[in-house]
Design a protein around this nucleic acid. Sequence first.
DNA 1: GAAAGCATGTAAAGTGTTACATGATTGG
DNA 2: CCAATCATGTAACACTTTACATGCTTTC
Lengths: 193, 193
Amino acid sequence: MKENTGKSKYVMLGMLALTPQTGYTIKKWLENEYSHFWQESYGQIYPTLKKLVEEGLAVSSHNSEHGNGRGQIIYTITEPGKKELSDWLSKAPEIEKFRYEILLKISFGDNTTKEVLLGHLDEFMKRNEKLLEDMNGYMEEMEGEKGQNFDCTYSKLTALCGIHLYSAMKAWAIEAKGIISAKGEKNHETKNT
Amino acid sequence: MKENTGKSKYVMLGMLALTPQTGYTIKKWLENEYSHFWQESYGQIYPTLKKLVEEGLAVSSHNSEHGNGRGQIIYTITEPGKKELSDWLSKAPEIEKFRYEILLKISFGDNTTKEVLLGHLDEFMKRNEKLLEDMNGYMEEMEGEKGQNFDCTYSKLTALCGIHLYSAMKAWAIEAKGIISAKGEKNHETKNT
DNA sequence: GAAAGCATGTAAAGTGTTACATGATTGG
DNA sequence: CCAATCATGTAACACTTTACATGCTTTC
């Protein structure tokens, strides 16, 4: 009845499966490579890492001699931790729930002006355009690196998902702007010259 | 310092702007027409409606003579409520945070088998295919209705967003399956016939 | 010498879902 | 008569972010 910590637990395990590291580096890693589809705050990271140790899924080693700050705590995944991770990976992912505030605002469009909606859509379009460019750049980076050393097939797949998503959202925003813009001109062609 | 109730407040206002109604009918409405991009539970709906009345953004009328159950409470939006709604509509929508569990699982793909990932992707693809079909059906429905009575431009725009999204996710899943399937066959063409 | 970064952590508040309790009416 | 639907509501729990506190090292 007390199973707790939700997905964060598995995210930590996945991060530690990559390499033994600290809560701080996990946060940086998430911010840089995962932020487009996942995010965790320190408020979740540190308590979750502690629980991992309590449950025997990771071990911690305190390193006070290393250089900066108050010393770091390096977490390493254990065999039971690897088992827990791979068990979770086998289970069907939960169905994602979307919460698009922009769609909400468009739904309620009758309570505002066309101009307001067009403004939101324009920002949305530009944001997705930018994300698309960034993601394409990131993809090229990986394509370069890949020829050399690492197999980043899985990272490329998540980036590819971003590319599909951002392209779709950009295309939709452009289409939506067109439809809303055209909405004023009905069946009357009255001209008062 | 105590501003509370987040987006739910505005969702309720938007629903009441449509027509005066009960918490129950708001829930049904959300489930049927908005669930692909927004969801609220009774645990949010009822307390939020009460707060709306406290703040003067809606008024409630208790109807005990109407038929079933313990009677219903019909909420009606007020002028200040309409103002609050349209003010919120003008503000830039918050940037959406995605949490795609399937991308997380793919990222951690090295800790499981190709088969597991292909299975997840296949389910994801089918689910999005289904959603796409449903949304296309819904769109056609509206196209029929529209010729007759109501202007459902905004509902059609949100449905269109769904169509773009689901198509993109379906396409990605198919592509990703191909890439993962091909991953085993490297540079060796060994055949043991 | 100040700012930024490294590094840890927690308390409080905010946000959201689930499970339960209640009870009448309608349809099979 | 039983199940479903209409209809309200809350307490407990689960999840997540924000703001704060601490303090060393490195860079400008």
